[in-house]
C-alpha cells in the first residue's frame, strides 16, 4: 500500500510552482519533502492532500484521490497545517475533539477519552481546559498535532494504512519537542501507517527520514534514502551554498554542517 503521485503541476497566475513532480511514499516509512525556500515543498503537500487544484494524479492506497469525497479522504489521511488559525475561543480539548469530525469507524461509543489521550501523547496532559488562544506557539502546534492524531488514531484501518501529512511540524518547537514530534511520526510509521512530512531542517531529515524527496525550483532534484540524497554535491547545488555532509560514528546517517559560502553571502548582502 502506498501513496503515489505522478506529474503534479501547480500554477499560480503565470508562475509555475510545481513543474511535473513525481512522488512516492510507502506505508511503514517516514517520507520527507525537503528543499530550499520557494522550492514548492508546501505546495507539493497541498497537492498531495487535495487542498489545491493541480494537474497530474494522486493515488492513496491505490485509490484515485480525485474520486474520493472529503468524508472518505478524512478517514484515510489527516493533515497538520503549517500554522492554524482558530476563530473562536475553544479549549485545547475542544480543538482536539474537532479531529473526530469525520468519526471513528466502528468505535463510535468508545472515543470519549481519545482527545485526552492524544493530548498526553504530545506532552500536553493537563492542558485540556486551557484556552487555545492563551497557549504558546509551540503548545498550539502540539495541540493541532493531537487533533490530527485523533482523526487517524489507528494507523491501520481494515487492513489499509492511514496517512499522516505534516507541514513543517517542528517549526515552532524547541529541540526537545522537535525530537518528541519526530518520535510520534516514527511510531506511527512503525505501527503500519504512512508519514509524509515537509521539513526545513536537513539534520532532522537525515536522522528521521526513510526516504527524502529534495525539491528545487518546482522539480525533484533528487529522491531516495537520506544517504543517497543528502550529499555535498546535491545539497550545494540545491541550496546554492557550500555544505559538508558528514557521518558521525553512532548514528550512521549523514549530518550536515553549513559553512558560510558564496551564494548565501551574496543573497544576504542584497
Amino acid at each position: 500500500m502506498e501513496l503515489r503521485a505522478e506529474n503534479l503541476r501547480v500554477t499560480a497566475g503565470r508562475r509555475e510552482i510545481l513543474r511535473g513532480v513525481d512522488f512516492a511514499a510507502r506505508a511503514g516509512e517516514v517520507a520527507v519533502i525537503a528543499g530550499p525556500n520557494g522550492s514548492g515543498k508546501t505546495t507539493l503537500l497541498r497537492a498531495l492532500t487535495g487542498e489545491i487544484a493541480h494537474g497530474g494524479r494522486v493515488a492513496l492506497n491505490g485509490r484515485d484521490c480525485a474520486a474520493l469525497r472529503p468524508a472518505e479522504l478524512a478517514l484515510l489521511r489527516a493533515v497538520l497545517p503549517q500554522a492554524a488559525a482558530l476563530s473562536f475561543p475553544f479549549t485545547a480539548l475542544e480543538v482536539v475533539r474537532l479531529g473526530l469530525t469525520a468519526g471513528v469507524p466502528g468505535t463510535r461509543a468508545a472515543t470519549g477519552r481519545l482527545p485526552a489521550m492524544a493530548l498526553a501523547r504530545v506532552g500536553l496532559a493537563g492542558f485540556e481546559g486551557r484556552h487555545f488562544h492563551d497557549l504558546s506557539g509551540g503548545e498550539k502546534q502540539r495541540v493541532q498535532l493531537a487533533r490530527v492524531l485523533v482523526q487517524i488514531w489507528e494507523p491501520v484501518l481494515d487492513g489499509a494504512p492511514r496517512w499522516l501529512f505534516l507541514d513543517e511540524p517542528v517549526s515552532a518547537l524547541d529541540i526537545g519537542h522537535q525530537l518528541q514530534v519526530m518520535a510520534i511520526a516514527r511510531d506511527y510509521a512503525r505501527a503500519g501507517g504512512g508519514v509524509v512530512a515537509v521539513l526545513h531542517d536537513l539534520n532532522l531529515t537525515a536522522m528521521h527520514a526513510d526516504r527524502v524527496t529534495l525539491l528545487d525550483g518546482g522539480r525533484v532534484r533528487s529522491a531516495g534514502t537520506p544517504a543517497e540524497v543528502l550529499t555535498d554535491a546535491t545539497l550545494s547545488a540545491a541550496y546554492h551554498c557550500r555544505l559538508r555532509t558528514n557521518t558521525p560514528p553512532p548514528a550512521g546517517g549523514p549530518w550536515i554542517l553549513p559553512q558560510a559560502a558564496d551564494h548565501c553571502q551574496e543573497e544576504a548582502a542584497e
Partner: peptide, 21 residues
C-alpha cells in the same frame, strides 16, 4: 454545527476533517 465547528480552523483544515466546504 459540525461543519461550523470544523470551519473555525479554516477552510483547508475543515476540508481535511472531511467537510464538503
Amino acid at each position: 454545527a459540525r461543519s461550523l465547528n470544523a470551519l473555525a480552523l479554516g477552510e483547508a483544515a475543515a476540508l481535511h476533517l472531511g467537510i464538503d466546504v
